[in-house]
Simulated assay, not measured.
Amino acid sequence: MATLTRVLLIDRHQLLIDSLSQWLLMNAPEIRVLAGASSWPPEGGIAQGDGAAKADVAVVGELHGSEAPNLSGIVTSLRASGMQVVLLADRQPVMAINSALDAGALAIVPKSADPGHTAAAIHAAASGRRYLHPDIKGMLESTASTRVELSVRERRLVELYLGPTPRSIRDVAELLAISEQTVKSHLHRVRQRYAAAGFNVGNIISLQEQLRKDGWLS
């Protein structure tokens, strides 16, 4: 008898939760959807006896606007709650996908893919194995040759400094509780890394463009 895998579905659209739950019920009886949620953590937290508290795998789809930038934090929280994570990733940029993987997500499938891929991803994650849909794998591989790795601190720093709402070095330092010189040192190291990889990012505009190309900025 196949081992039962208990699943929590997280998506802002109830239709996705309902349709995927129904598909799994009809086609993958060894997967049981215990609960659905529109956000994480659920409003009011997890009550004792809540199905979410007993899930083995969380399947994370489209999040609410305020939650979307914190995808890696949500993955970290779900992992801390004892769940493996499958990400449905139609709209997430490469940066968000890589951050989710770094935070512990094991499987990533396009939201538009056949539900059979989601079922396979759930099985893989429940067994502690990685599962990347071919389209996701191809996208990540296509950026790997030019991608310079950034630490978690560096990602947050460049996002604040050069992201959709750019901030001054002083503001970045205050938000991260570090000195302005430390901010400058981090930026210098990022530029050095790009220079070593053969990319000229000597000015702010070229650095911003390369970070965006590599998926570190949305």
Rank of each mutant, 00 (worst) to 15 (best):
A2C: 11
T5V: 14
L8E: 04
L16N: 07
I17M: 10
L20T: 04
Q22M: 13
M26R: 10
I31M: 13
R32C: 07
G36A: 12
G36H: 12
W40D: 00
P41T: 03
P41I: 00
G44C: 01
G45W: 11
G45I: 01
G45Y: 01
G45T: 01
G51I: 07
K54W: 06
A55E: 07
D56P: 11
D56W: 10
V57W: 01
G61T: 07
E62G: 02
S72F: 05
G73R: 09
I74T: 03
I74W: 03
S77V: 00
L78V: 05
L78K: 05
M83F: 08
M83W: 06
M83T: 04
L88Q: 09
A89W: 04
D90R: 12
P93E: 06
N98K: 06
S99Y: 00
D102C: 11
A105P: 08
A105M: 12
L106Q: 07
A107M: 13
A107C: 15
I108H: 10
P110K: 11
A113K: 12
D114H: 15
P115W: 08
G116D: 12
T118S: 10
A120G: 12
A121G: 15
I122N: 13
H123A: 06
A125T: 02
G128E: 14
R130W: 09
L132E: 00
D135Y: 06
M139I: 03
M139N: 08
S145L: 08
R147L: 13
V148T: 13
V152F: 05
V152S: 10
R155V: 00
R156C: 00
L157H: 01
V158S: 00
V158W: 03
E159S: 00
E159I: 01
P166D: 04
R167E: 12
R167A: 11
S168M: 15
S168V: 12
I169N: 06
R170V: 14
D171K: 15
E174S: 15
L175Q: 11
Q181S: 08
T182E: 12
H186Y: 10
H186T: 00
R189W: 01
V190T: 01
Y194M: 02
Y194A: 00
A195S: 09
A195G: 06
A195D: 07
A197Y: 04
F199A: 09
F199M: 06
I205S: 04
S206Q: 09
L211I: 05
R212E: 04
D214E: 05
G215S: 07
G215K: 12
G215P: 02
L217R: 03
L217N: 00
